[in-house]
């Protein structure tokens, strides 16, 4: 049992890392990855919503009829999102302004509904919690990787600190929307290279 919980947790980081492996939840990953700070904020909001929805969906999995399950899942997820929205507005107002419309849009993040449908509705509460935590942190990790590349190369900073020499002119293209698409595509390509290498080694 313990081994399974650990396994469900760790699969979210490489083997089934949602945005990079399945192209799920790429809209927020593209939109809020201009700065590492906003990527982290978005990531943790998704971790919270994902854990909550996974636990609740798994808790009611035996009493919800199959036909109305999507409506029930969406209501559960939307409730979680409203909580995040209100808490962020009250305690993390600057972050709330930066993320803007992307906080309510967590409702339609395919990762959240995808895990409810593919995992939580078939598995017990504890496993679902560890799956949600792993998937959520994996999502955060992908956002941090992409935003790090964009912030370091685009602005010369990381989490607001200067990391490149003062004279670095910056590469504004990466901070603009088209840059997000190109960086995301290249990261996916690099991941394919690494996966192919790893498979060759084990084979």
């Amino acid at each position: 049992m313990a081994a399974r919980i650990v396994n469900e947790f760790t699969k979210g980081f490489w083997k089934e890392i949602a945005p990079l492996r399945f192209a799920l939840g790429i809209c927020p990953a593209l939109a809020v990855s201009t700065k590492v700070e906003s990527a982290l904020g978005m990531g943790f909001a998704v971790v919270f919503v994902l854990c909550m929805s996974n636990v609740l969906v798994s808790a009611v999995r035996n009493i919800v009829p199959d036909k109305v399950r999507i409506a029930v899942f969406i209501s559960i997820i939307a409730t979680g999102v409203v909580i995040v929205e209100l808490v962020m507005q009250a305690y993390f107002y600057p972050l709330f302004l930066v993320l803007g419309i992307w906080i309510p849009l967590i409702v339609v993040n395919c990762v959240v509904l995808g895990r409810a449908e593919a995992f939580a509705r078939k598995n017990p509460v504890l496993l679902s919690l560890s799956d949600g935590l792993g998937m959520g942190l994996g999502f955060t990790l992908s956002l941090v990787v992409i935003s790090s590349i964009r912030e370091i190369l685009g602005d010369g900073t990381w989490l607001g600190m200067m990391v490149l020499p003062e004279a670095y002119p910056g590469f504004g293209f990466l901070l603009r929307p088209p840059g997000a698409f190109v960086i995301f595509g290249l990261v996916l390509g690099i991941m394919n290279v690494i996966s192919a290498r790893l498979e060759n080694k084990t084979a």
């Binding site: 088209p178 698409f181 190109v182 595509g185 290249l186 996916l188 390509g189 394919n192 290279v193 192919a196």
Partner: peptide, 21 residues
């Protein structure tokens, strides 16, 4: 081979975004 599928679609979208911009 390593860019087939999703990666090349995203890069194409980036190029398209540039022309729209």
């Amino acid at each position: 081979k390593l860019l087939q599928g999703v990666p090349i679609t995203l890069i194409t979208a980036g190029m398209m975004g540039l022309s729209f911009a």
